[in-house]
């Protein structure tokens, strides 16, 4: 069984995540089988798409429960994009969708001040400022101000600042782009499409021995 399970829950294209992990020498497989997730050492929870459809698929496939179990057991989890959003309590997308509630917080839509007009989704390369001080191992060695590739219209707003490892700014809104809590790390950007800096996040996750 592959050491790393990449969750497939009909939330977009996972090939690029698998390619990036393989490139780094990781042993990973794309799976929708809860048993495979249970047997894996680590879990990558990627995805693009809408919150409601994602949550419905996770429940239907039995993966929602499996992720909660993995989280409770302290298994290392890396959420990417939608995987960085559904870990929170709820999202305001699609008229309000309850999330997995692994971490307290909301997922909200970009709302700009009238004088600020910005295109949505927030798509492209943006700088992530990492907070000074002690870094979670998944974000070790990354220079503050490194750029990552984003594609999203909603962003996570964790209840506690302590969860936030790195932030980015779009249209005057500073939002959490890198999140960590014990064995759960999550990034709003696409680490698998963010060049060497993104690969560093994945490499850190692969090498992490909590």
């Amino acid at each position: 069984m592959a050491r790393i399970a990449i969750l497939d829950y009909d939330a977009g294209n996972l090939t690029s995540v698998l390619r990036a992990v393989e490139h780094l020498g990781g042993d990973a497989a794309i799976t929708r089988d809860p048993a495979a997730v249970r047997g894996a050492e680590k879990v990558i929870f990627p995805g693009v798409g809408a919150a409601r459809a994602s949550m419905e698929s996770l429940r239907r496939l039995g993966l929602a429960e499996e992720i909660r179990r993995a989280f409770a057991a302290g298994k290392p989890i890396l959420g990417i994009c939608i995987g960085c959003q559904v870990i929170f309590s709820e999202s305001e997308e699609d008229g309000g969708v309850p999330g997995l509630d692994l971490l307290p917080g909301q997922v909200v839509r970009f709302r700009f001040a009238p004088a600020v007009s910005r295109k949505i989704p927030h798509m492209g390369w943006n700088r992530v400022e990492f907070a000074p001080g002690e870094r979670h191992p998944v974000f070790a060695g990354l220079e503050s101000g490194s750029e990552f590739y984003f594609v999203h219209s909603y962003y996570p707003r964790p209840r506690s600042e302590n969860l936030v490892q790195g932030t980015a700014v779009y249209g005057g809104i500073r939002f959490a782009a890198a999140i960590a809590h014990e064995h759960l790390a999550a990034v709003q950007f696409h680490a698998e499409k963010s060049g060497p800096c993104g690969l560093k996040v994945l490499e850190n996750f692969l090498n992490w021995r909590p």
């Binding site: 090939t15 690029s16 390619r19 990036a20 490139h23 590739y149 696409h190 698998e192 499409k193 060049g195």
Partner: peptide, 8 residues
């Protein structure tokens, strides 16, 4: 290409 480059 997807095996060798890690940008969109």
């Amino acid at each position: 290409v997807a095996r060798r480059i890690f940008i969109p």
